[in-house]
């Protein structure tokens, strides 16, 4: 680690703060446990709307929290809470959730829409949201078995422009009707 990088890490973890004495960084578990009240124990949400964050990649969680904190990604409450943490702390939290298995939910979905979504999935989503949205590679969130209202809110925000869509995703989404998008969301939500 270069001297500069070490300094950045120390600054980020609050070890070099002068004046008021802030203790060393909390442990990853200490930080992650504070999320459970809304996102469920170990990040497996019992729903109906707060997403499960269990099994999401570190990159995805850290990027999301940074975007919530800056306001770049729309939220009701997450942005207000994100403002309480440093990027180092986001990384610590993320390290806990990334180790968890993807959570499976049991929620009501519409079989006809699920079937229609299943047909659209391969050509539109699979490349980035592999394994029916269950593979947490890189910067893709977990869609597999994800709570449907959360998926719907996310698409509403993407379409309203209050959350930025990756270019490749936008190309696909622009060509899909509202009914097709809903079918895809039902498909992801229905996974067991």
């Amino acid at each position: 680690m270069s001297a500069r990088k070490t300094l950045a890490v120390l600054l980020g973890s609050g070890l070099l703060l002068a004046g008021a004495h802030v203790s060393g960084a909390p442990t990853a578990t200490m930080l992650a446990d504070t999320c459970a009240g809304c996102h469920g124990t170990d990040g497996a949400s019992t729903g109906p709307a707060t997403p499960s964050i269990a099994g999401m990649s570190e990159i995805y969680i850290v990027d999301s929290m940074k975007a919530f904190k800056s306001g770049e990604r729309h939220s009701t409450i997450m942005g207000r809470i994100a403002k309480g943490y440093s990027e180092e702390e986001f990384k610590l939290m993320a390290s806990v959730f990334a180790k968890q298995p993807v959570a499976t939910t049991s929620q009501k979905t519409d079989a006809t829409k699920v079937a229609a979504g299943g047909k659209l999935y391969g050509g539109n989503c699979e490349k980035c949201h592999d394994e029916k949205g269950g593979l947490a590679d890189d910067d893709a969130g977990i869609l597999y078995s994800q709570w449907l209202p959360y998926l719907q809110y996310s698409m509403e925000d993407y379409k309203a422009g209050s959350r930025e869509m990756p270019k490749k995703m936008k190309k696909k989404v622009d060509k899909l009707s509202d009914a097709e998008i809903e079918a895809l969301l039902q498909f992801f939500a229905s996974q067991q």
């Binding site: 009240g37 009701t76 409450i77």
Partner: peptide, 19 residues
Amino acid sequence: ERAREVQYAYSWFNNITSD
């Protein structure tokens, strides 16, 4: 947004009681 907060309130209840 207010409607979402209601759904998040119910989610909070389910998650915290399960926790």
